[in-house]
């Protein structure tokens, strides 16, 4: 596969995520099967995964994306199958292959938003594999930090007056506070009441933890600096008009028999945490 050069150093993290999905797909007790992931990850993705696990001195950099993937697989499918939603938007889709590996209801319109070089690299692998989407897949080549990306989504056929389900996975950690809120504000203007939103976010403890700093440093040295964290994801989304549920990996609904350690309650301060957030537009 040709690896396209990218001006955005965060984009290679999508190969790391793909490598985690590829490794998971080889397990007999896998939480999902992603047959395209290994080709999408390429050597660069597996190298990233190994480096991050070495930096973290744990399996977390491989396990967290797996738990997160399955958690949001279930979330997206439930929104479509139980609420009749037929518009799915994957913001910063990266090398995600949900369009191909999940069984979507008929007439589901799935929009993948990401940088042109990321989607170009993904489409090259998909085309070579001869994979076919299980939905109407639309790729929208945009930079979500720019202001005019909603126009491209609308041009692609998205209808803001109809309910939708959005996923912002693995992105907010890399943005500034202003960019996070700018993005959420735009998402809110594009979503009808009753729509769903999934996202993940880290807490501030991750930025101050001696346990986490080798990983944070390894990311920063590769240009993928963690910038944003919040201890109150409920408030983060509430101010943009969303009613929110928050789950930590390892808790009920995000354990899948795989999270290796008991969870510390959120009232204990200073502990590095990640939050899996699901919300409904009010």
């Amino acid at each position: 596969m040709t690896v396209h050069p990218t001006s955005n150093p965060v984009a290679p993290t999508s190969r790391w995520m793909a490598a985690a999905r590829a490794r998971e797909s080889e397990r007999p007790d896998r939480l999902f099967d992603d047959p395209l992931a290994a080709a999408l990850a390429g050597p660069e993705g597996f190298a990233w995964l190994e480096r991050m696990e070495a930096a973290a001195q744990s399996s977390g950099p491989g396990l967290y994306p797996v738990i997160r993937t399955r958690f949001f697989d279930d979330f997206l499918l439930k929104a479509c199958k139980e609420s009749g939603i037929r518009q799915v938007v994957l913001a910063a889709a990266g090398l995600d292959t949900r369009a191909f590996r999940l069984e979507w209801p008929s007439n589901t319109q799935l929009y993948e938003l990401d940088l042109p070089e990321v989607l170009d690299a993904k489409d090259a692998v998909i085309e070579a594999a001869g994979a076919r989407a299980n939905c109407e897949r639309h790729t929208v080549r945009v930079d979500l930090k720019e202001t005019d990306w909603p126009k491209a989504l609308l041009t692609a056929g998205y209808r803001p007056e109809s309910e939708s389900v959005w996923l912002i996975e693995g992105l907010l950690f890399y943005l500034t506070w202003n960019d996070v809120h700018g993005l959420l504000e735009k998402v809110s203007t594009l979503t009808a009441v009753g729509s769903y939103l999934g996202l993940d976010v880290m807490n501030t403890g991750l930025f101050f933890s001696p346990v986490a700093w080798p990983m944070m440093a390894a990311l920063a040295r590769r240009g993928a600096t963690g910038r944003f964290g919040t201890n109150a994801p409920e408030k983060l989304t509430a101010i943009h008009g969303w009613e929110t549920n928050v789950t930590q990996p390892g808790e009920e609904g995000a354990n899948f028999g795989r999270w290796p350690r008991p969870m510390l309650p959120r009232k204990i301060p200073g502990v590095p945490r990640s939050f899996l957030v699901t919300a409904r537009r009010t």
Binding site: A56, S58, G60, P61, L63, Y64, G205, F208, S209, P210, V211, A212, Q248, P249, G250, R261, P262, M263, L264, P269, G270, V271, P272, R273, S274
Partner: peptide, 16 residues
Amino acid sequence: SGIGLRHAPQDRRNSW
């Protein structure tokens, strides 16, 4: 050492 941190989390249970 955690010196200077009011909350010096050495616990890996929640860390990924």
